[in-house]
Each structure stands twice: as C-alpha cells, then as structure tokens.
C-alpha cells in the first residue's frame, strides 16, 4: 500500500467505528500513517483515543469500518499484528515485584525469542534506554521516568515495526519527557513507525503527522505544516495577528466584544487573534483600549492549538446547526 506522497502506509483506518451499546466511542475514523512517521494522536479525555489504539492493536473488534496494521486486518488477523507491534500503555503495567531484567526476560519469552536473541536484545535496549545501572532493581522501585523507559524497553524487546504509545509522558518530569522524545526520534530514525497519543500541544508540534479526535470523530489529520495552511483554519478574508501589550488581560476582555475579532486568546504575555482582513491595524490597536504607542502588532501563522481549536468550533457549530 502506498500513500499520496509515495511512502508505505503502515497503519490505515477506513471508517473505523466502535459502538458500546448506544454509545458511539469512535465514529467513522479514517487516516493513514506512513512508515517511520511519528503520528501524534490528540484529543480530550473520553474522545475515543484509547479505543482507536485498542482496535488497532487487535484487542477490541471494530463495530464497522476497517483497520490495517502492516497490511494485516485488525479484525481477522489480530494475532499476526500482535507479533509485530509494541504497546506501551498510559498506566505502568509491568510486574513491580520482578526486576528490570526479569521483566525484559519475561517479554522476550512471551514473544518466543531464543535465549541468545533475548540476551542480544537486552544489551541493545539497555544501551538505547540507558537502564543498564538498574537491571537488578525491582521495577516497582524505579522512579516514574525510569519506569517509562523500562516499559519502552519491554515493548521493543522483539524489535517491532510499529510502536503504539498511549500517553507515554503523562505525569513524568520535563527532563524525562524530553529524554523519552529523543528516544522516540531515534526509533523513528531507525524506521519504526510510532503512534503516540498525548495531551501536550508541544509534543504534537514535534510529530511528523498529527490527528485530532473530538467527541468520537476525527476532526483533522495530516502533517502539522499542511494543517496550519488549511483554509478552514484561517478562512479567506481573515488574518492572524500577535498583539503585544503591557496589559494583555485587559486588552483580551475588550477585544472579545469587538465584532471583527473572530477569536482571541492569551498566549503567555501576548494575545493571538483571528481578525477580519478589513479590520485595519489602526482600528485593531484602538480596539484594545491601550495607548497606541504601547501596542505592537505582528502577523503570525497559526499554531497547532489554533488549528484544533478553530476546527473543533467549526465542527461544533456544524453539528449544532
């Protein structure tokens, strides 16, 4: 299978749907992930992220639609998929009463690796994940970041082609988070396809591809740069402006009441606004209610957050109408 840009498609969903009774947890989701991509899957809690992962990993049968991983159908060839994927859940799910090495040995055996192969893989992963100093420590005694590295090492013991990570950085410190992402980039460089769910927008910006799911529906999927250029994000006749002012909160309150300002939000100590193109800079500065010499304007491209916020609002407006 190959995608529009000529790359192999490793993970594909076509109208993937899952219902639990009357509730539709995942509603006709379609996307494609090329080889060696880092696909960032975003969405609020309960939007259906984990359900999509569980379907792709072959532990939950889709109610409708189709999903393939490495060309295997998720419904009929689940066991074939399980042999060539790794999965790291958001909750620490290794055996706390076993040592680091025992946990890795266990997963090596589960995947049916030979003893020599397990030894070889352990060495490689100790080096890659930097957990060699802790091989004899009980997993329960590791700190959060090291637990995540061990979980990653266990998920990689059989050299999977695809790695699913369900919120791998939830609740770990920023240094450990940065280190984990460095590891993910390294894996991607080696040709492993990564499917990562996250809550963090900065993590989304690092991904080669992103998808955003909201209320069970996939709002958008693609490369971050492509998404930022979408017409729907910055509609014709509008522009995005960064507004610097000494009193941003006051300016924010005033701008929210202005008709030509479609959206305005605080970004650190500056404001990001989506305004109609026919609103002149002078009028905009005046609308902030601040002294004109204290306000700076700068045209900007949308962030991924802008993309997701704008598209979710559009979606809500459409379904509400």
């Amino acid at each position: 299978m190959s995608g529009a840009d000529g790359a192999d498609i490793v993970i594909a969903a076509e109208g993937l749907t899952r219902r639990f009774g009357d509730f539709t947890a995942v509603d006709a989701v379609s996307f494609a992930v090329p080889r060696a991509a880092i696909f960032g899957f975003l969405g609020p809690n309960g939007s259906g992220k984990s359900t999509v992962i569980r379907m792709l990993c072959g532990v939950l049968r889709p109610s409708a639609g189709r999903g393939t991983v490495l060309g295997h159908d998720v419904a009929s060839e689940a066991e074939a998929i399980k042999r060539s994927i790794g999965y790291m859940s958001q909750k620490f799910s290794l055996y706390g009463d076993l040592s680091v090495e025992e946990n890795m040995d266990f997963y090596g055996r589960i995947y049916g690796l030979s003893r020599a192969r397990v030894r070889e893989r352990k060495e490689a992963l100790y080096a890659l994940c930097g957990i060699r100093p802790f091989v004899n420590r009980l997993a329960a005694k590791l700190s959060g970041g090291w637990k995540q590295r061990l979980a990653l090492a266990c998920a990689l013991i059989h050299e999977p082609d695809v790695l699913f990570l369900d919120e791998p950085t939830a609740g770990i410190d920023p240094v450990a988070r940065r280190d984990l992402w460095d590891l993910l980039f390294e894996l991607s460089g080696r040709g492993v396809t990564l499917f990562v769910t996250t809550h963090y927008m900065d993590e989304a910006e690092r991904c080669s591809h992103v998808g955003y799911i909201h209320m069970s529906r996939l709002i958008v999927a693609g490369r971050p740069a492509d998404l930022k250029r979408l017409d729907a994000v910055t509609p014709a006749g509008t522009r995005r402006v960064e507004i610097s002012t000494p009193a941003p909160a006051d300016a924010l309150a005033r701008l929210r009441g202005v008709a030509h300002v479609r959206d305005v939000t605080l970004f650190g100590d500056v404001l990001h606004a989506l305004v109609d193109a026919d609103l002149s800079d002078t009028d905009l500065v005046a609308a902030t209610g601040q002294p004109a010499n204290r306000v700076d304007l700068r045209p900007i491209a949308p962030t991924l957050e802008d993309v997701f916020v704008t598209l979710s609002r559009n979606e809500l407006a459409r379904s509400g109408a």
Binding site: V59, K82, R83, I85, K91, S93, Y95, G96, I110
Partner: peptide, 13 residues
Amino acid sequence: ELGTLEQLFVTPV
C-alpha cells in the same frame, strides 16, 4: 487490576 493483563493482551500469548 495491575493493568498487566491489558499488556499481555497485545502480545501473541
């Protein structure tokens, strides 16, 4: 309860 069963489900066991 530990969540390790979920992890086992995604292996070929």
